[in-house]
Design a protein around this nucleic acid. Structure first.
Length: 840
DNA sequence: GTAGGGTTAG
């Protein structure tokens, strides 16, 4: 009944429907009628039986904008929400004859504001209208959405629809071409090819850009050449991109040499090689790590009398940055400007990454400054680089700040950036924050993927929170994201970290006996668990199981066993294991040698340690910073502290970064040698290299001053550390307290003890007995008694050793009263303080 | 359709 509705004139059309007559008269005669009045009219209209047809007819007759103008979105939406797909198809078709704007406008309104799901017919109508009007951007977006929704394998049905419903429509060839392009763009190559086949049957022209896009997707395969032949046969003009894609394809399928000859084969084209083709070649060489070759091609561009464009410069700048030649990259950027090519956002992003790769985040910030001065704004790539850079150096708070800024500027973050943030939060133990980020990403409509979940599961497990890890595990399972070996490993690790070796073994047996996995890492985690508990026998049992099952152990498997043997002092067996590694066709790793070297060092066999170092170097196993730290420890044991210092310099020269343990080792040695000047200088060197000294560093310095230096200096150090809000552990206090007890300033000891308690450290019997034993040893009975009372009032009972110590000085004998008055907490009053001072 | 980002393990 509604066929050819579009031919009807609005007024005529409305008059046919009695019930809507008052409304139509309002619309046409009183444009300023009140909204309330219209609302009543509309309610009446909506109340009629089967109002849908009526409404659709009214809309069609009036034209969408006429009606929408009078009724406003709200009422309009009520009306159109009653429409079904065939009705909408009709309306859109009729509107398309009236004006393309109104058809597309109505289409968008329904889709975006009413959440209406259009039929493919409506979409194709709109697509044809847009094609006729040459609104290519909109055209592309509608076709893309359609193709993405339909998914792979949908081309035949869409082609059929086009063929039978839209055969004689204007712009049909543009629509077909766009369909092929969209399939190609969305990497549905087979669909794109099947559209092209139909187009060939219909004798429709394929555009160069569609061919190029397809070529690009097929550049890894032979089919690329079929498409290229088709381009030539059909007489479709080639563009610079066509050649450059072929060159890129040749690089991957064949060789760079073939690609170069193809490029240089200027006979092929009238214009000769293009800058675009040269850019492609340069990019390839850079990716292969041959920046120098890329540079020489840059010269060839100039030789040909061609002008390098921003791509040419950016490709080379990027190549240089990745190769670590930041300075040359910066120099080349200046060249770029000198030649009148302005560095763009991409250029600055590349430089940012160059700085970030060298760990120079301050440099990266300066690049952004410069970018802003030039009037260029950081884009989502800039933010991503900076966020990842900050995460990489462990500066998560800065990364989070940038993430907020990114959101506030309307940039969408990718799942990967969230994963980077999550991963670095987990690594620094901020799993709670990581979970918050997970909820946040879900709230902004990003779907966490397998990797995101695996990172979280690993983070939670590492903390021993297997419970919550399992919840996440279930959550991902519900979303049909199937956990892989990463999650299995993480959970096994979690159970082990929780200290529940039986539970871990149960899970391990469950995974390995079901034969779902032959993942050696699971064996390694399990074996390492046993070794850590000192149960080397069980680790060996598992190793036997590996061999019996015919599985292939990895170097880590052997390293774990070696570690076990070393730990139990069985260096001969450990050494034998090193040889077994090679029998299995594996190579020992730096960890293998470092473990053995460390064991030799611990046993005082420094020569053995050096022999291993030589063997390691002879076998081209590169020592790591840990290997060097072990050697430094060995040198320190021999008192060769200056050799140790030189070794640190050597590490820097080799590009190895000493860590806190390296410095702590060497600082300890200088303290022992009473060279505090050098010890503190090493501490400053740490700061210079952005290495935050650990509480151990400060404990070493304090202990050094206490034992080998000036106790007052140690006191002053503690005060200044506290003033600077530097994180200290209980050890810093107990060290000083013990020193004061031993050297007689019991008043200082008491004060420090109280300070330690105030800081909220949990005080153990060991801390009390350390103090009391020392006081007893020096016969400061009153003071020993004082601490003893404090301990009792703290609810701590003495152990046997402490009782003996007290009894030997007869402290217990006269103080049975105190034992029965545990709740009385002793207070130090000023007269007592004076007494302590007088005595000391 | 030639340039820039980027996540998980023992």
């Amino acid at each position: 009944m509604l066929h050819h509705i579009h031919k009807w004139k609005p007024l005529h059309f409305l008059q046919k429907f009695q019930i809507l007559a008052p409304l139509s008269s309002l619309i046409f005669t009183k444009p300023s009628a009140s909204a309330a009045k219209l609302e009543d009219e509309l309610a009446a209209a909506a109340a009629i039986p089967n109002p849908r047809n009526t409404v659709s007819e009214v809309i069609t007759g009036l034209g969408i904008f006429g009606l929408r103008k009078f009724l406003g979105n709200c009422y309009f939406r009520t009306m159109v929400s009653k429409l079904n797909q065939p009705e909408v198809d009709l309306i859109i078709e009729s509107l398309s004859l009236e004006s393309s704007d109104s058809a597309f406008g109505f289409f968008k309104f329904l889709r975006n504001e009413c959440g209406f799901r259009h039929s493919r017919i409506s979409e194709f109508i709109v697509v044809h209208v847009l094609a006729t009007n040459r609104q290519f951007q909109e055209l592309r977006s509608v076709v893309k959405q359609m193709v993405d929704e339909e998914g792979p394998g949908s081309a035949p049905s869409l082609c059929e629809l086009l063929l039978y419903r839209f055969r004689d429509w204007d712009s049909s060839s543009v629509v077909w071409d766009m369909l092929a392009f969209a399939y190609s763009r969305s990497e549905m190559v087979h669909d794109a090819l099947s559209v092209l086949a139909k187009m060939k049957d219909l004798n429709l022209k394929v555009s160069t850009s569609t061919y190029n896009c397809l070529l690009h997707n097929l550049r890894h395969t032979d089919i690329m050449w079929n498409v290229y032949n088709e381009i030539k046969d059909s007489g479709t003009p080639e563009s610079d991109y066509t050649t450059s894609i072929l060159i890129d394809g040749l690089c991957q399928q064949s060789s760079v040499q073939d690609a170069v000859s193809f490029l240089m084969d200027a006979e092929r084209t009238e214009t000769g090689p293009s800058v675009v083709s040269f850019n492609t070649i340069m990019s390839r060489f850079c990716k292969l790590g041959f920046v120098d070759v890329a540079k020489s091609f840059f010269c060839v561009i100039l030789k040909y009398g061609l002008v390098p464009d921003s791509y040419s410069y950016n490709i080379l700048i990027h190549g240089l940055c990745v190769a670590g030649s930041l300075e040359e990259a910066l120099e080349f950027t200046k060249d770029m400007e000198r030649h009148g090519v302005q560095p763009d956002t991409v250029t600055y992003n590349i430089l940012c990454k160059g700085f970030h790769l060298l760990g120079l985040m301050s440099g990266a910030r300066k690049v952004i400054q410069k970018m802003l001065v030039k009037g260029l704004n950081p884009d989502h790539v800039t933010y991503t680089i900076m966020i990842c850079g900050h995460c990489h150096v462990g500066n998560i708070d800065e990364a989070l700040k940038l993430q907020k800024e990114m959101i506030s500027r309307g940039f969408q973050l990718s799942v990967i950036v969230y994963s980077v943030l999550l991963s670095s939060m987990c690594k620094s133990g901020r799993v709670e924050g990581a979970l918050r980020l997970l909820y946040e990403m879900e709230a902004v409509g990003l779907e966490p993927d397998l990797i995101t979940y695996s990172i979280l599961i690993h983070g939670l497990c590492k903390q021993g929170d297997v419970q919550r890890a399992s919840e996440i595990y279930r959550e991902m399972y519900m979303k049909r994201i199937i956990p892989n070996y990463f999650a299995h490993r993480a959970i096994l690790l979690g159970l082990r970290e929780k200290g529940d070796i039986y539970e871990a073994r149960k899970y391990f047996d469950h995974l390995t006996t079901r034969a779902v996995t032959e993942d050696m890492v699971l064996y390694n985690i399990m074996m390492d668990g046993y070794v850590k508990l000192g149960n080397v026998a069980e680790a060996i049992q598992l190793y036997k199981q590996i061999i019996e099952k015919g599985l292939n152990p990895s170097t880590v498997t052997f390293n774990t066993l070696i570690h076990g043997f070393c730990k139990t002092g069985k260096l001969v067996e450990a050494r034998r294991m090193l040889d077994t590694i090679e029998l299995h066709g594996l190579l020992p790793s730096p960890v293998t040698y470092t473990t053995l070297m460390n064991a030799n060092c611990e046993q005082g066999n420094i020569n053995g340690m050096f022999e291993l170092l030589q063997e390691m170097e002879a076998k081209d196993v590169e020592p790591t910073h840990v290997s060097y730290t072990v050697v430094i420890k060995g040198l320190c044991r021999q008192g060769k502290r200056w050799d140790a210092v030189h070794l640190v310099e050597e590490m820097y020269a080799k590009g190895l970064s000493p860590d806190q343990i390296t410095y702590n080792t060497i600082i300890k040695c200088f303290c022992k040698a009473q060279d505090f000047e050098k010890a503190f200088q090493l501490h400053n060197e740490m700061l210079m290299h952005n290495l935050a000294p650990t509480p151990v560093t400060y404990n070493l310095l304090i202990n050094g001053l206490c034992v080998y230096g000036d106790l007052e200096d140690a006191d002053r150090l503690l005060v200044s550390l506290n003033d600077s809000n530097i994180n200290l552990t209980k050890v810093a206090y107990t060290t000083l307290i013990k020193a004061h007890c031993a050297k007689g300033d019991v008043y200082r000891a008491v004060a420090l003890f109280h300070q330690m308690v105030e800081k909220g450290f949990e005080i153990s019997i060991r801390d009390y007995s350390a103090v009391i034993n020392r006081l007893c040893k020096r016969c400061w009975i009153t003071e020993a008694k004082y601490f003893f009372c404090m301990m009792l009032s703290d609810g701590i009972s003495p152990d046997q050793e402490l009782c003996e110590s007290l009894r030997s000085k007869d402290v217990l004998g006269e103080d049975r009263v105190v034992l029965s008055h545990r709740s009385i907490k002793p207070k130090v009053n000023s007269s007592q303080e004076k007494a302590y001072r007088a005595e000391s």
